[in-house]
Design a protein around this nucleic acid. Structure first.
Lengths: 348, 348
DNA sequence: TTGTAGGCGTTATCAC
DNA sequence: GTGATAACGCCTACAA
């Protein structure tokens, strides 16, 4: 099966012109006679001529495509970010190639290399939870590949970054639980190597400190796979429940973690929020129909994707080397629902 | 900003060989001396040589990439399908370029043309709800572009297709509602131009007929945008509720429709399933934590993506024109939960 | 105003 | 065994 398309050469032959004349006519060059130009244009249109982007890439050294690496596409937050990326990319004439690391360091490395060798003009990436070493990205960066980090970022590479205000989002979520009367607030989060994890953890801790509640490290659980593996969350939850001072609330730090924890609490038949209240980072559009409806820290995912893409395109299209880099921080939104209703204070 | 990579030419220069010798050595040709071969291989490895896929594409006439068009990536069913596509594509050495039609005919046309001009080797597509004319795909098909349809298919183009058993899925869902004691079962579905819509509608009707329940067309509501626009579903629901014989159950035909209907019923404070029971097609991983947990018709989305990709790759790599086409049908699964609990039969 | 030639990186053919 | 040459489709100095 071969996909045969019309080329400049075909047009040249048909009109008895040289390829360069045709090429110039197509690009509306001023050095081509009006007559010839029209003839070429008309012929091209009639035969539905489309320049071969592969050949253009080879010639021009870029591909008008951008690569995206996220841990998982099957996740509300990331699919919304990708929506944002796609919309801007399309409007600027770029293709988007999406790949998933599935939280695996190895896959992240191979994906990034694959993308760069496919001559993407730039890369938008949120690091995998396994990633500790970013030499693979440094290599690409040093070779001149523009990179923009979002969500799970690093400061080891000087380039544009965009994140949600994770600290504040976590702070507000925790403070909200405190205001609702909860004191023994646990935190289930992802791998501690992620920037999001440490920022959200810091927000959580600060809120406790500001309320005069001491921090109990046993209340903090790390799930290395960020909830991709259900058992992991299951276990973290089980450990929390077995604590002598069982938590009366949980703050979960990511999309999957939030839904899995909620699901698991339901399976264990632990009433929410009566026995345990719950607040979580999530971009699920269904948080309002959860049982109970889930108080959520929502990130401006679409906007994050859009701005990341705008920043990347500006890097790609910049004529001179960029040396001033931005770190944009977008505000989160706390949507208060039933899972964090005020504590009924049964026994003191 | 330029991305500089090492080429065959560089190796040739460094080792004082010709490019063709290096090229052959790299491809482990038998006509190259063991010594030279080793020298080249070692040098290539040390300098991390990677053949330029763009150049390879130009030379070989294909790009080892496949295009995907879905209506919306931010949707459990489709993101799971894409997961499946990605996994197989990766293992077979293909890149995946994902685009969204967002239920717009126009975007579907431009995406398909964009992809084909980007020289994808094949296309996997689920039609947009607006699409009635598929000339744009016929054009590509006739030029030799391998296409595989999934989910929302057409029979106007002879090629491989893969779908869920929509009829049976809908039949079982409806029969389940009947068995639970419901009689006035409404159906909210997508645009009637979609294959999925008519198949699910047929299943719904057949189940009613088999139970001796007459079909009331006023109970059937079409949402042209498949739930993308919330107001549409809102309105359909409102009309159902105003019917003299208000339905006692609703069967929704798609992912977004199901969650939106559930959400809307909650907002209207209509108890589920007491006043209205609900069963829906959905691949949400959170259906179990909905309020109430949602009885779902689940499609084998991941598998659908995997098989679609395998079929496409077999088309792409087939040496001789393929004339025998398959239509695979995958079974759905009915997951019974609280939203369809047996009818309490208040007033007869 | 139009055409020629060279090159982007790779590979296939054919000559040495 | 190795190398020169042409070609994939497009673009652009430079010649004519």
């Amino acid at each position: 099966m071969k996909f045969e398309a019309i080329t400049i050469k075909d047009i040249a032959r048909a009109l008895d012109l040289s390829v360069s004349t045709v090429s110039k006519a197509l690009r509306d060059s001023h050095e081509i006679g009006e007559e010839t130009k029209q003839a070429v244009l008309i012929y091209a249109r009639e035969h539905n001529y489309k320049p071969n982007p592969i050949a253009q890439s080879l010639k021009k050294g870029h591909s008008r495509s951008i690569g995206v690496i996220v841990c998982n596409i099957d996740n509300n937050f990331f699919s919304q970010v990708i929506n944002g990326i796609e919309s801007i990319a399309q409007s600027k004439g770029y293709n988007v190639i999406i790949t998933q690391s599935r939280e695996s360091y190895e896959k992240e490395v191979s994906n990034s290399e694959h993308l760069s060798s496919r001559s993407v003009d730039g890369l938008i990436i949120s690091l995998s939870s396994e990633t500790k070493n970013i030499d693979h990205l440094k290599r690409l960066y040093e070779k001149g590949l523009p990179i923009v980090f979002f969500d799970r970022i690093t400061d080891e590479i000087p380039t544009h970054r965009i994140i949600a205000n994770n600290f504040k989002g976590a702070y507000e979520a925790t403070r909200h639980l405190i205001q609702q009367g909860y004191r023994k607030i646990a935190h289930i989060t992802s791998s501690d190597s992620l920037s999001t994890t440490s920022e959200r953890l810091a927000g959580y801790k600060q809120a406790l400190i500001d309320a005069g509640i001491s921090i109990d490290e046993r209340y903090i659980k790390f799930c290395l796979h960020g909830g991709m593996i259900r058992e992991e969350t299951h276990e973290a939850l089980a450990e929390l429940l077995q604590l002598p001072e069982r938590p009366d609330a949980i703050f979960t730090a990511s999309d999957r973690l939030s839904t899995t924890t909620l699901s698991q609490l339901r399976i264990m038949q632990i009433p929410i929020p009566r026995d345990i209240a719950l607040v979580g980072f999530t971009n699920s559009i269904s948080a309002d129909i959860f049982n109970p409806s889930l108080t959520s820290v929502v990130q401006p995912a679409m906007e994050m994707g859009q701005q990341a893409t705008e920043m990347l395109v500006s890097l790609i299209e910049s004529r001179r080397p960029v040396t001033q880099f931005e770190k944009r921080v977008l505000e989160t939104q706390l949507q208060i629902r039933d899972s964090s209703q005020a504590r009924q204070s049964p026994s003191p």
